[in-house]
């Protein structure tokens, strides 16, 4: 269903863009191709990683360490991994989805994707050089704390 909506929007936008400006649309394809090229290596790496997790780690182990029984420590761990990992957001969601399917808890998935998108340890030096160290530390630190709270709350609601 979501796929149908996305493809509908894409076809519509592409059509309008083509009608108004052919050259610009071609430029959009070029930009897209550049982004795709950048995303491909980490995506393939994660695909391999997922396969190995599924192949080697039994379901019970995942649901034990990442399930509801893992509690706050599990949420903290997931948030920490999300903060450090440098995975494109678009690939992180299917990754979190696979973990959910394997028995990970909703809290873990929520705090993981939240820190993954909002906290960037890898990009922090860049952020600090542009926006200052204090801003960077507070923004990332607060985002991390809120991701923990949010993860627990999402788990409580769902």
């Amino acid at each position: 269903m979501v796929l149908v909506i996305i493809y509908g929007i894409v076809v519509l936008c592409l059509g309008v863009s083509l009608v108004y400006d052919r050259d610009r649309t071609m430029k959009a394809f070029k930009v897209t191709w550049m982004m795709l090229k950048r995303m491909l290596p980490p995506t393939l790496a994660i695909a391999g990683f997922i396969g190995m997790v599924m192949g080697f780690v039994p379901r019970e182990v995942i649901s034990h360490y990442m399930g509801n029984s893992s509690g706050l420590l599990g949420v903290f761990g997931a948030a920490a991994v999300g903060a450090v990992a440098f995975i494109p957001g678009l690939v992180a969601f299917p990754f979190a989805g696979s973990l959910l399917d394997q028995g990970a808890s909703v809290m873990i998935a929520a705090s993981f994707v939240t820190t993954l998108t909002m906290v960037g340890v890898v990009t922090a030096p860049l952020e600090a050089s542009e926006l200052g160290l204090r801003f960077t530390l507070w923004r990332n630190g607060l985002s991390f704390v809120f991701a923990l709270i949010l993860g627990v709350l999402v788990g409580v609601v769902l």
Partner: peptide, 19 residues
Amino acid sequence: QVILIVPAVLLLMGLFEVW
């Protein structure tokens, strides 16, 4: 699963970037 959805989303981003 990723191939089904990601290129379409990226194309949307590409279009936004040029417009």
